[in-house]
C-alpha cells in the first residue's frame, strides 16, 4: 500500500494542487492538506495502539476509501479540479485520510513487482482523466483493507541506504513530466513507465544489489535534470528502475513516515525549482536545452 500511497495519492495530489492554482486563501482550501498533517498523528497513534489500525477498523477505512474514490471521480471526471469547491476538498481529504489509515495499518507488508505494476496501470489511466490515479488509490485501500490484496510476507531486513534521500530524490525527479505537460495528458506515460521500472527493479532485485548505492542516488539526481518530452517512457523506466533498486535497500519493514516525508519534500522542492525559474544559473538546469 506504500507504493499506492506515494504514487497514487501524494503525487497526483501535488499535481492537482499545482495544476489548479491552489492557494491557502480560504479555510476550505486547507482540506486537501489534512492527510499530510494526519501522517505523523496516525504513526504516533499506532505505536501504543497497533490494533487501531487493524481488524474491523482497517476494513471500514478501506471500504470508505473505495467508496469516496468512486464518488470523487464521478464528481470531478472531465471537470477541472477546483479546491475552492468544498466538496472537492472534503472528498480529497476523505480519500487521503482513509487510504492513509490503511497504509499505516499495512506498512509491514512486503511489496512485490505486482504492486508497482498496479500503480503504473492506474497512472497510465491518468491519460483518460487525471482523477483516475485517485481511484486507483481508493481501490487499493479497499482491497487491502478487506484483505483481498495479494500480500507477500517477509522477514525484517536491515537497510544499506537511508530511505530519506532516496525518497527525496525520487520525489524531486518524478513530477517533472507533470510540470512539463500541465493539463495535457502526456505525463501519464512517463509515470506509468516509472511504475513499470519499479516493478522490474523488484523482479531483478539481485541485480540491483550489485550496484553501489551512491551510483543509484546519483542516477536519481541526474534524472531530475536529464529529461526530454520525446523520451518520457525510457526516462520514466530508468527512473523507476533506479528508484526501485534504491528503495529495495532501504530496509524492511518500510518506514512510511520517512519515505512519505522525503517524497513530499522532493515534490515541493521540484515545484519550487520549476516555479522559480528566474534563479540565475539554476534555471538552465531545470530543462535541457534552455
Amino acid at each position: 500500500m506504500i507504493t499506492a500511497w506515494l504514487l497514487l495519492f501524494l503525487l497526483p495530489l501535488a499535481r492537482a494542487l499545482v495544476g489548479s492554482g491552489w492557494g491557502l486563501h480560504r479555510p476550505i482550501e486547507a482540506l486537501p492538506l489534512l492527510p499530510l498533517l494526519a501522517l505523523p498523528v496516525f504513526l504516533t497513534l499506532k505505536r501504543p495502539n497497533p490494533d487501531l489500525f487493524g481488524g474491523i477498523l482497517l476494513k471500514v477505512a478501506g471500504s470508505g476509501a473505495g467508496i469516496v474514490a468512486v464518488v470523487f471521480v464521478r464528481m470531478r471526471l472531465l471537470e477541472s479540479m477546483d479546491f475552492k469547491i468544498w466538496q472537492t476538498g472534503l472528498l480529497m481529504a476523505g480519500l487521503g485520510l482513509t487510504s492513509l489509515w490503511v497504509a499505516v495499518g499495512s506498512c509491514r507488508d512486503k511489496e512485490g513487482p505486482g504492486d508497482a505494476l498496479w500503480a503504473g496501470a492506474w497512472l497510465l489511466l491518468g491519460w483518460l482523466d487525471p482523477t483516475l490515479p485517485f481511484l486507483g488509490c481508493g481501490v487499493t485501500a479497499f482491497l487491502r483493507g478487506n484483505s483481498w490484496w495479494p500480500v507477500l510476507h517477509d522477514e525484517e531486513e536491515g537497510s544499506t541506504l537511508s530511505p530519506f534521500p532516496v525518497a527525496l530524490l525520487f520525489g524531486l525527479a518524478l513530477p517533472k513530466p507533470c510540470w512539463d505537460f500541465g493539463p495535457e495528458p502526456g505525463w501519464s506515460f512517463a509515470l506509468a513507465a516509472a511504475g513499470a521500472g519499479i516493478a522490474l527493479a523488484r523482479a531483478l532485485s539481485a541485480l540491483g544489489r550489485r550496484l553501489p548505492g551512491g551510483a543509484l542516488l546519483t542516477l536519481l539526481a541526474l534524472l531530475s535534470v536529464l529529461y526530454h518530452p520525446n523520451a518520457v517512457i525510457p526516462w520514466g523506466a530508468v527512473l523507476g528502475l533506479a528508484a526501485g533498486w534504491a528503495m529495495e535497500r532501504t530496509g524492511r519493514p518500510a518506514r512510511l513516515g520517512i519515505l512519505s516525508g522525503g517524497f513530499l519534500l522532493g515534490l515541493a522542492l521540484s515545484f519550487a525549482l520549476h516555479a522559480n525559474a528566474w534563479i540565475p544559473g539554476l534555471r538552465h538546469l531545470i530543462w535541457l536545452g534552455n
Partner: peptide, 9 residues
C-alpha cells in the same frame, strides 16, 4: 508554467 516560462513539450 512555473513562472514566466515555456516548457519542453
Amino acid at each position: 508554467h512555473g513562472r514566466d516560462a515555456f516548457t519542453p513539450s
